[in-house]
């Protein structure tokens, strides 16, 4: 069984992004870029499936400019067998991404497709669900546990009320939450080895048109700032302050 893992290149989660003064986006000059943390977890899970003998090939895929080859190489160094870059210079909106991913899924015929539950740049939380819809296959979002057995998977999902358990038939789309696993660290020799692993480039328009990119993104602004707070010295001060604001 093949496992396809979609990994997006995003601003590292430790970076405090700043909106450009002209409102055209956020400053990404010289900013550290990484694999979207949820996608790194997705890749780790795929590698564990292979190590457990449940999968025989792990393919990482990223859509973006050639810059995202850096994240694909990291994915290969983590242990993926091969990589595919969907080459495009435009940021893809989820429907376009899902259409392109579906075309690739049809070509590769994986048993499991893993994505992060959300990309921490656009915070959309849509692409996996859209891919599952277009493909007409099950979706299990926010996975905290995945147990494969034959043609089905039992997935424990994080939901507002606690944990929901689903059984889904394969092939299926699963999106990952943070508690699924802790990704491994990449070791130096693996980085060397990864240079020899195959990385194919396909053009976006070889898969789909970008007609789905139809939402218009306007001005960017920084979030509203909260007023400056005060410090109190002790519990008595805290209680007085809360009472004076009518909160106690």
């Amino acid at each position: 069984m093949k496992v396809l893992v979609f990994i997006k290149r995003v601003v590292d989660y430790n970076v405090r992004v700043k909106v450009r003064p002209d409102g055209s986006g956020v400053d990404t000059d010289g900013v550290k870029m990484s694999i979207n943390p949820f996608d790194e977890i997705a890749l780790e899970e795929a590698l564990r499936m292979r190590e457990a003998g449940q999968a025989d090939e792990v393919i990482v895929v990223s859509a973006g400019t050639s810059d995202c080859q850096q994240q694909l190489r990291t994915g290969l160094a983590m242990g993926a067998d091969r990589a595919i870059q969907i080459d495009t210079d435009k940021p893809l909106q989820p429907l376009t991404a899902a259409r392109a991913f579906q075309a690739l899924v049809e070509q590769q015929q994986p048993g499991v497709v893993l994505l992060g539950k959300q990309a921490i740049d656009d915070d959309n939380n849509q692409t996996g669900q859209m891919l599952a819809a277009l493909w007409g296959r099950p979706q299990a979002t926010n996975a905290a546990k995945i147990e494969l057995s034959g043609d089905t998977a039992r997935v424990t999902r994080e939901v507002d009320a606690g944990l929901e358990v689903l059984d889904i038939d394969l092939p299926a789309v699963i999106t990952t939450d943070l508690r699924l696993n802790t990704p491994r660290f990449v070791k130096l020799p693996d980085i060397m080895k990864a240079k020899k692993k195959p990385l194919d480039v396909v053009a976006l328009d070889g898969l789909v048109s970008d007609a789905g990119n139809d939402l218009k993104i306007g001005n960017w602004s920084p979030p509203p700032q909260r007023g400056k707070g005060i410090m109190v010295d002790d519990v008595a001060g805290l209680v007085t302050e809360l009472k004076s604001r009518g909160l106690l």
């Binding site: 429907l95 669900q129 859209m130």
Partner: peptide, 23 residues
């Protein structure tokens, strides 16, 4: 945009062939 809404709505939007505005 609860876990439930986030699970269902993108799937419906894709079936309808439209992008979704989140949050």
């Amino acid at each position: 945009s609860s876990m439930y809404g986030k699970d269902v709505l993108p799937r419906a939007a894709a079936l309808l062939g439209v992008n979704q505005v989140s949050d």
